[in-house]
Computed example of a mutant assay.
Amino acid sequence: MKERPGGHERPAVITAVKQDRKERRRYHIYIDGADEAALSVHEDIMVRYRLLKGQTVDPAVLDEIRGEDDKYRCYMAAVVYLGVKPRTRKEVERYLLRKGMEAEAVALTLDRLERERLVDDRDYAGLFAGQRLRSAGKGRRLIVQELRQRGVKGETAAEAADALDPAEELEVALALAVKKWRTLRGEQSERRRKLAQFLLRRGFPGDIVREALRRTAEDGDDDLPWLDN
């Protein structure tokens, strides 16, 4: 790019605009007769800034265009990623950073996605909790752990778990308990202990486990006081 007297850069002249051979909605912008493209932009950015052959562009505007294209690419990558299934804010952030997006563009994209309700951790947590209970047979404690692993804040994860219907959670635990009980061998107390541990590992709280045992195993002495802890 040529300089004006005094060291200031002169406006660049767009000498060629070429469509990308693979990504048909991207265009390479050549300036001042250079053999290599000065920048590559999505067609929406090209139209917005009227990047046409023969147009002059100020160097500062070129930097602005590069930044806008970074944000556009980042946003579109996130939208495609979310099109597969809902994601948490942290999951989208991790994905975009793995793809090499700039941290500033990622932060702006995440804020925009939240404004547009394309990313909503509270809604995600509520849907996730219900699905994991019904389809995977997971109790609220394990559901909270899984939500935290996906980047959901502890308070939001706990609220989603607390919103689960206790009657439905007991129904799921009871179905698992009945099936598991048939496979257990040994003395009655040993079978009860193993069943309790199985349900606890599935994430069910102590009161749910106790009631599932009461309805599944034959009546007997309460030999599992640690369920109250």
Rank of each mutant, 00 (worst) to 15 (best):
R134F: 04
E91Q: 09
A16T: 07
Q55R: 10
V47N: 09
G151F: 00
G83F: 08
R193S: 15
T216Q: 00
G33A: 12
L97P: 15
S135W: 12
E114Q: 08
Y27K: 03
E171C: 00
Y30E: 12
R26F: 15
R191K: 15
T15N: 07
L170R: 09
G151E: 01
R192S: 06
L174R: 09
T109Y: 14
D20C: 11
D63K: 14
A78T: 11
Q19P: 12
A107E: 13
T183R: 13
A157T: 02
Y27N: 04
R21S: 15
S189Q: 05
R192T: 05
L52E: 14
S135Y: 08
F198V: 09
V41N: 12
G83T: 10
A60W: 07
E91T: 05
R24Q: 15
G6W: 06
L142K: 15
P5N: 09
R117N: 07
D121E: 04
A136I: 00
P59L: 03
Q131D: 11
V47E: 07
G151C: 04
C74H: 05
L224P: 10
V17C: 08
D222E: 14
T88D: 01
H42F: 14
P86C: 03
P225N: 03
A38L: 12
L174A: 04
L113D: 10
K2Y: 07
T15M: 08
D219Y: 06
E218Y: 03
I29N: 06
D120R: 00
A161M: 01
Y30L: 13
R210M: 02
Q197Y: 05
R87A: 04
D123R: 11
D222S: 08
L39Y: 13
A167P: 00
L195N: 10
G54E: 04
L200R: 13
A196S: 11
E102W: 06
A177R: 03
G33Q: 04
Q145I: 00
E102M: 01
D222N: 10
K138Q: 14
K90L: 02
R185A: 09
W181K: 02
Q19E: 15
D111Q: 08
R193N: 12
E68W: 09
L52W: 03
T56H: 07
E9L: 12
K138I: 06
